[in-house]
Design a binder for these strands. Structure first.
Lengths: 219, 219
DNA sequence: CAGTGTATTAAAATATAATATATTTTAAGC
DNA sequence: GCTTAAAATATATTATATTTTAATACACTG
């Protein structure tokens, strides 16, 4: 049994997470020797990791000036949202057309997990916010998993996580509104009603944008 | 004036080009010390570059097994094409809505360059195929440049070049068909007729797919 | 004998550290 | 505010150690 994660991929995940969850804040200068120390990796491994993240857009590389956590702006957030909607709806359309029993069953499972966690949260159990996010991701990916395009799934994942970084700017979340939206998306997906599912999905993501852009003061 | 390209970004461009233009063929194992020699860069710089390219999808990294030029398949080509159409049409719609005189003028310029080169090529001057490609890129990007989304432009660029790699599998090109299609796209774009422009653009890209998938034998 | 599994060895990827150089940033002085 | 000197930092190479994979030889088994 070889669970030999390389140092490189471990540190990549760690830093990516720290950016998404705000431990490394937007526009922060990522000083190489400082990070090399705090993450306990060598400079070369760290640079490999930062280069990967800069290709994805979580880190911005400025030649001869080093690396920075990619800055945020309302404008960028709107772009990310718009692209997420474009890709997620397109993939949803394909998924509703192609999805077989296997896909449908996995979707039902993913929704059940999400809904269960959401109920826990509404009862005041805040300890599991990070797992709620995992289940939210699981649900949204399950929706499109039958789209039959690895490239599309991969691009969607990128945009979901860029969106998530903005979401994490606020500690509060939307509560019961999001729960209802999820249910509507789920129901219309099972009915293979694409127009309705698309409408509800668009609305859901846009409401997320609205909530955050009202609650967070971009400068 | 600072044109001080770093070794890293220079080698990145070189290797990316070599992949797109087929000098480094699909599925080739990218042995580190061999590449380090042939491109005359150190291993660390090379690894940084390969990590960037693997994030973008031109290179595939397999943990502990090294790097490979990303493999090709008809299925992948169809996915890429479909995504390119989705993004390029979406961006075109925004661009036709927002484009001002500045944008329109640049588009006219880009089309003129492309058309001039196309005419040269039809007269038998094959020496400038690579510059024709640059002008084709220039035209297609100009079309969408007023879409007002840096994220969209960047994603579109990625997909254009992934598409281009497939295009480069054949030495021959489509000749006068493509020339006519470009004209139709250009004309309808200037008239701000989105439905027509979209139709012509979709057709243009799909014809590219057809031409290549008929001429190249995927295994 | 063919095929299969298992050591052994060779090759290659991964990771760190040490070093040199070039560029940017900071600080000091005019 | 401008120029220059010093410090900090990024970039790049090289050398080395470790780990993993790939290749080879060798025995075992049906």
């Amino acid at each position: 049994m070889t669970h030999s994660n390389t140092v490189g991929s471990a540190i990549y995940q760690k830093i990516k997470d720290d950016i998404i969850y705000g431990k490394l804040q937007p526009s922060t200068k990522l000083k190489l020797d400082k990070l090399s120390n705090s993450y306990s990796v060598s400079m070369s491994t760290l640079r490999e990791c930062l280069n990967r993240l800069s290709s994805e857009g979580f880190v911005s590389a400025e030649e001869q000036r080093g690396f920075f956590v990619t800055s945020i702006s309302l404008n960028d957030f709107e772009e990310i949202t718009s692209l997420r909607i474009l890709l997620e709806c397109h993939a949803l359309k394909l998924s509703l057309k192609n999805g077989d029993t296997e896909w449908e069953g996995n979707l039902v499972g993913a929704y059940h997990k999400l809904h269960t966690k959401e109920t826990e949260m509404q009862n005041g159990d805040v300890s599991t916010k990070k797992s709620l996010i995992r289940y939210d991701w699981g649900f949204h990916q399950s929706l499109i998993l039958a789209c039959n395009s690895a490239n599309l799934i991969s691009l969607h994942s990128l945009l979901y996580y860029k969106f998530l970084r903005y979401q994490m700017l606020l500690t509060s979340s939307r509560g019961s509104d999001a729960v209802n939206e999820h249910k509507k998306i789920f129901d219309s997906a099972l009915e293979r009603d694409f127009p309705k599912a698309e409408k509800e999905l668009k609305n859901h993501v846009k409401m997320g944008l609205n909530f955050i852009s009202k609650g967070y003061k971009f400068n």
